[in-house]
Simulated scan of single mutants.
Amino acid sequence: MRISLVLGDITQQQVDAIVNAANSSLLGGGGVDGAIHRKGGPAILEECRKLRASHYGKGLATGQAVATTAGNLPARWVIHTVGPVYSATDDRSELLASCHHQSLRIADELGAQTVAFPAISTGIYGWPMASAAEIALQAVRSASTRVAEVRFVLFDREALSAFESQNPA
């Protein structure tokens, strides 16, 4: 599998699947989640509501993943995953790694060859960027997957730099 790091807007990535750093409600939020719902249009929210009404009545658990249409995005699917809130006293790194493993598992089930990830849990959930980069890259490298390319799409230069420092060429 090829891992690439790019500075950009995840909602503009032409990939098979875009990973959404969702909240457990699956009904949209801020940051990456809000951008994906806004640009993807109402089809994503409609499928998320159906998921809530059927399998995920209490919401999606932290570290898990589920897929919907990508609506108006230039991808086929959105894989929603709920990252953990950072804690300085409780090690939640396995949950953050699980977001990546479960997203790739769903990608394999869908037949996705290219997947774009954001820096999960680094926004409002407060995960330090360098730590998140280390966990994300290790999780993807260790995953058993048929995905050909994982693209980390980083919103600013600070995030890109943190991921680059964990992914020497």
Rank of each mutant, 00 (worst) to 15 (best):
L7G: 01
L7M: 05
L7D: 05
L7N: 00
G8Y: 12
G8D: 12
G8M: 05
G8N: 01
D9E: 07
I10Y: 01
I10L: 13
I10R: 01
I10P: 00
I10Q: 00
I10K: 00
I10C: 04
I10D: 00
I10N: 12
I10S: 10
T11K: 06
T11E: 00
T11W: 03
T11M: 13
Q12G: 14
Q12Y: 05
Q13Y: 02
Q13W: 07
Q13T: 15
Q13C: 14
Q14D: 12
Q14E: 12
Q14S: 14
Q14N: 13
Q14T: 14
V15H: 00
V15C: 06
V15W: 06
V15N: 00
V15Q: 12
D16P: 04
D16W: 02
A17I: 02
A17W: 01
I18V: 15
I18A: 11
I18R: 05
V19W: 06
V19P: 08
V19T: 03
V19A: 08
V19S: 06
N20T: 14
N20P: 12
N20R: 14
A21S: 11
A21W: 06
A21H: 09
A21Q: 05
A22I: 10
A22C: 11
A22P: 12
N23A: 08
N23M: 02
S24E: 15
S24I: 10
S24D: 10
S24W: 04
S24C: 06
S24V: 09
S25Y: 01
L26D: 09
L26K: 05
L26V: 10
L27M: 15
L27V: 00
L27H: 03
L27C: 10
G28T: 08
G28E: 10
G28A: 04
G28R: 05
G28V: 05
G29Y: 04
G29K: 00
G29C: 03
G29Q: 14
G29W: 07
G29E: 15
G30L: 05
G30P: 14
G31V: 01
G31E: 09
G31N: 01
G31D: 00
G31K: 02
V32P: 11
V32Q: 05
D33N: 03
D33C: 13
D33V: 09
D33K: 01
D33M: 04
D33Q: 03
G34T: 12
G34C: 14
G34F: 09
A35F: 02
A35L: 11
A35Q: 11
A35W: 02
I36E: 08
I36G: 07
I36D: 03
I36Y: 04
H37T: 09
H37G: 07
H37S: 11
H37M: 09
R38E: 15
R38S: 13
R38K: 11
R38C: 03
R38P: 01
K39P: 00
G40T: 11
G40V: 10
G40M: 07
